[in-house]
Design a protein around this nucleic acid. Sequence first.
DNA 1: TTGAAAGCGTTACCAT
DNA 2: ATGGTAACGCTTTCAA
Lengths: 336, 336
Amino acid sequence: MAVSIVDVARHAGVAPSTVSHVLSGKRPISAETRRRVEASIATLGFRPHAGAQSIRRQSTNVVALVLPMRTDSPGWQQMRFVLGVLDAAREHEMNLMLLTAEDGVAAIRDVVDRAMVDGVIVMEIELDDSRLPLLQEINRPSVLIGTPREPTDLVHVDFNFAAAGALCVEHLHDLGHRHIGYLGHSQPLYDRGVGYALRTRSGVLDAMAEHGLPQTWTAVEPTPAGAARAIEDILAQDPALTALIIYNELAFLQVLDRLAQLGRSIPRDLSVITIGQDDQAASRAQQTSNIPIPATQLGRVAFERLTGLIAKSDQPVSTLLEPHLDRQGSANPPLD
Amino acid sequence: MAVSIVDVARHAGVAPSTVSHVLSGKRPISAETRRRVEASIATLGFRPHAGAQSIRRQSTNVVALVLPMRTDSPGWQQMRFVLGVLDAAREHEMNLMLLTAEDGVAAIRDVVDRAMVDGVIVMEIELDDSRLPLLQEINRPSVLIGTPREPTDLVHVDFNFAAAGALCVEHLHDLGHRHIGYLGHSQPLYDRGVGYALRTRSGVLDAMAEHGLPQTWTAVEPTPAGAARAIEDILAQDPALTALIIYNELAFLQVLDRLAQLGRSIPRDLSVITIGQDDQAASRAQQTSNIPIPATQLGRVAFERLTGLIAKSDQPVSTLLEPHLDRQGSANPPLD
DNA sequence: TTGAAAGCGTTACCAT
DNA sequence: ATGGTAACGCTTTCAA
């Protein structure tokens, strides 16, 4: 059996409560006593039992992170959120518990009701997310990465996807393009009401409308065949297309491959701007003008918000990180 | 304050110990009592306090997963291990705690000594991994994903990387290739002694030697420039190269891009076989013969081993999954 | 079949 | 500045 606080107390010739206070610093301790206690702790290798602490304090120093709903949309992008949260957690000397979202509601309820975590971060929020009612009802802090449809009092952080979409259109329009197409996510993501997919599309289409451009767009299945179909589809909608906006990490390369096959060179025949192009693609020889998604930073901010809530300090209900475009020369003025 | 076992006991008109036994099933309960207790549990919404349980039982139903040492080698591949473990954990109704390996030793010691986890799974084992002594000394079950240099009694699961490397050479040799090159990982991975990088290279080079072929290989930095340098380097070593083996998820696409730039078409001018080509690349139009790494399965097996150890059932010290080649036509007999 | 009570390791309150 | 003790929520003996 492991060494407990009474072992330390005995070894140092003090009361257990004294040891406890040396550790927590919650009351004055004489220099001499502190020295002896710390020595005993060191020699015995004492570490307080987390379960025992959690039963007395009202906290565990653990937070839960709920992964995206489906893993049909994997990708390194999503892992970057996790790493952002994890990184911040480590800095705060907190631990991270990973939950799958398959049975999101049940899993969250479980860890919360059983007092395993101090708070919950939920990724990939859908417009009408089934987990929102639960999060409001439970009495623990929570932070959403993503924005629900209805403005609730739930604290959330997000990337301004609508602005990102609009920014793409603005940039291409400024360059002189009047025939712009949008290649978005796969249909299931729209069907599920995933916030970032819908908001980006709205941002793009609204900006197109504002400039009096036709709202040319299509969903893309992340397969070679899907990419081919999408390109065929969008060229049918507007054969005079001079620019393409792509936001689909999984289909991105397939689309470029297909365009190459069709003999459309970038940016000569076609200007291309991407959103959220992932690191691997980004490091390819063939660079693309891109609006990066600050996933790591979002994860980090989400965690900071959560610790803020746990510490009962007021937090902004909504935090929106703004997009910026990395110009890499894949978008030029149109030739004609 | 949350509802506790005494609340349930009072509500059902029984003793707390009875409620406990209804939950654990560790002693006979009359049908009538069980009914009443279960009703009370349901109406009150009682869930046992995890911390309180962990202090009496000797377990938490949580396992720790230690991520790879550095995140300089990210990639979706690694996330697949995590998902495999996570998936298995959920099936066993266990929870997963994520640890970064930056300060691996300290982090592991912390969660173990503080009794936060029942066991530990460690990813990306190096030949002389600094975490091994700790794992032997602590008194908790642990499982390695990867194989250390010295055969210890530490249970580990791994992919047979050496066999995978050899298989590539065999296949190309059978096709008639006599000038084969190996493009491996980045130099830092070799320097750190990361098992899979070293073992794959050995598998390749040994097989080359066995067939009397020159041991042509080079490391590849995962950047466009690095890929270009590597190709230049390996062609300098053997200008008559007819086949290439690539195991570097991050550099893979850059290498293909560079080859395309150089006008070397696959498989006409050059046969290519990859190891561990990731999903994104795999779904490209341009398919490549590949030896997949069963990451998800490895994660799953690691978890099963760990639960076996926790249940004190004997487990095989070493488990090695064997490679198989997915032929996709990127490797043909040489023209000359 | 059930209840009472001790005890797990820690913290907080009440004393001194 | 320090010690004693109750209490947290649960499991497990020991009795009945």
